[in-house]
Write a protein that binds this DNA or RNA. Structure first.
Lengths: 195, 195
DNA sequence: ACAAAGTTAGTTAATATTAACAAACAAACA
DNA sequence: TGTTTGTTTGTTAATATTAACTAACTTTGT
């Protein structure tokens, strides 16, 4: 569990990342924004890496929660994938900084601990979606003539691309509709329509 | 045009980016690798940003070349998209550092000039692919019941995701086959099969 | 002889982190 | 009850390291 200050540090970090990018997340900026001195940060976190690890953990567990909810759900696989789509999207909308975090692998490249965590999160997400695709194919909802691996790459890649575009150009347009449209396109593409 | 030294600086930069990431591209590393002193670098480039701009320009023009080739080509649109897929992939294989560059938007976020260039490149690529999709739909080769914008997001997103996975996990596996399989999946999905 | 390309030896600004100490409060105890 | 002791959370000042970049001088090639 996090203390109030620890939570504040994490929240403020996400704010900073959101507004000026991960590069701007320095202890100095962090301390200034919170209104305490730099060394005070170290009363609550051993070092900067452990702050970042906490952020990634938060990210990981919020994703896990979403997947768990979908596993229990009685919906059909395609609908569950759609929920994950929307769920991720809601998360991004509520907390735009997560977008920066998700695309920050390159920055963590010199920190093995962080890179490992990122790889772990990506891998788990991939497998969760893939499991749903496989299930959808088994139940005849998704076209079984395609390798589930490639369908998963297409699904996740599309979502990421959408988010990236949103971050780079669109900026606060009709994002919810965009996601709906994108997913409905994907759905029609991969659905099993042997009528 | 670039002098020999300038070219060497660019090449070595790409080598460094490739092996230890963009974060590792410092003037010190660059000079050491080339075998000259740090200030000598400044005899050939005004500053670090201009080196990075040159790299992005190289990236941009090599992409442009590829698109130009495809425009002249007599192939059908889907085949041309496939060529672009393979072309990009060849580029990545020949020069893995480009992968790092392409995913480095987050790092350039505090450098408006660089960020603008990245946005420009992404935008042009997007529109080039989209034009091919539209043409494919007009010629009845691609299913016209889908918004070309979303199909383009799916196509580019998949390619990027594939590359990302390649960078993160697969590492020197059967990459050429993977690209072939991925594209053939996409092709089957979006093809117009009203037979 | 002169311009291009290199060197050595610096500068400035940032960075994460540590050392040493202080105020506020709580717990323990006489 | 009042004093001692410890803990938490903060401070200021300093640290080591690294970044990009510069000034002034030397070498090299034509």
């Amino acid at each position: 569990m996090l203390t109030d200050r620890q939570q504040e540090i994490v929240d403020t970090s996400l704010e900073i990342i959101s507004s000026i990018g991960i590069q701007g997340l320095t202890i100095k900026n962090l301390a200034k924004r919170i209104g305490i001195s730099e060394p005070a940060i170290y009363r609550h976190y051993e070092n900067k890496i452990s702050i970042l690890l906490t952020i990634l953990d938060y990210f990981k567990s919020s994703g896990e929660q979403m997947f768990r909810k979908q596993i229990k759900s009685e919906d059909r696989p395609l609908r569950r994938i759609e929920c994950i789509f929307e769920g991720h999207f809601d998360a991004f909308e509520r907390n735009p900084s997560l977008v920066s975090v998700i695309f920050s692998e390159e920055i963590f490249r010199n920190e093995p601990v962080l890179q490992a965590k990122i790889a772990e999160i990506m891998d788990r997400n991939f497998n969760a979606i893939k499991a749903l695709v496989v299930e959808g194919q088994a139940k005849g909802e998704i076209n079984p003539n395609f390798d589930s691996k490639y369908l998963t790459i297409i699904i996740i890649g599309s979502l990421r691309m959408m988010v990236k575009r949103w971050q780079m150009v669109d900026k606060s347009f009709n994002n919810r509709d965009e996601v709906k449209n994108l997913f409905s396109t994907i759905r029609k593409l991969i659905e099993n329509n042997n009528s």
